[in-house]
Design a protein around this nucleic acid. Sequence first.
DNA 1: AGAGGGATCTTCT
DNA 2: GAAGATCCCTCTC
Length: 273
Amino acid sequence: MPRKRKLLAQLSALKNNSSIPPFDALENVNATPDGGSSPKSSKYFATENKKSSQLEADFFNQPCISLAKSFLGQILVRKLPDGRELWGRIVETEAYLGGEDEASHSKGGKQTQRNAAMFMKPGTLYVYQIYGIYFCVNVSSQGEGAAVLLRSLEPLQGLDAMRELRSASRKGPPKVLKDWQLCNGPSKLCQAFGIDKTFDQRDLTQDAAIWMVPGHDLPGEQDVVATKRIGIGNRGEWTQKPLRFYLRGNKFVSVVDRKTEREMAAMGHFSCS
DNA sequence: AGAGGGATCTTCT
DNA sequence: GAAGATCCCTCTC
């Protein structure tokens, strides 16, 4: 049987509530990861509570590089069809500037059916399929055709569900994935969060199944490593530009650049500890 | 630890 | 018709 078959079966199982959790389990799902320091929410106040704590349009409306850095430490929330909530802290992003940026899908300001979301209002999701089998998710920023690629998350809540979704799309003998393997890559986090093409052009400030909330420990400038982007082929100067940002020392980052970290340390960007 | 290749298919030229 | 903002497995040092 093709893998796609298996994936679809998994997703439809979730949609059909074939394994619907008991009521109290649904209640627990609304608890915050730090377990009680945040106000408790019940399903009756879910909408109101969500509105007061989620990242709004003004947050997303900033220049691409600025937004890419601002995402670090913020939390992506995904509500699955069965009611379970997945929480992940953003630890790695990439900026794609559009126009001048030769590595961007919107290079030359070119708008196509695929990349239309990059030109939509800040906070709009741009989801595309790559290599026929994977998805990547971006968030549109301020700037014509500019967007931020979400590359890695630190899983905070719903790890069992993430493991299920990740394992469903893997072939061969089942292996139990470690926590750090769940979301350390742009397509891995899409698998773990059940993000596919149907999320393209959705608005992070309006959608019922996906949104962001402010993180509690945000990095300082000295905690952020800026280095070249991953998987950029021959794109001239744009191949090397430091448009990837990640949390220094975080074990959920997909690719660590020791060389750049050493150079930044030599330049005095990092505090000595 | 690093290199290499296969999977797999939509999008654009 | 070819490329591609990836992932995972295997081989080699």
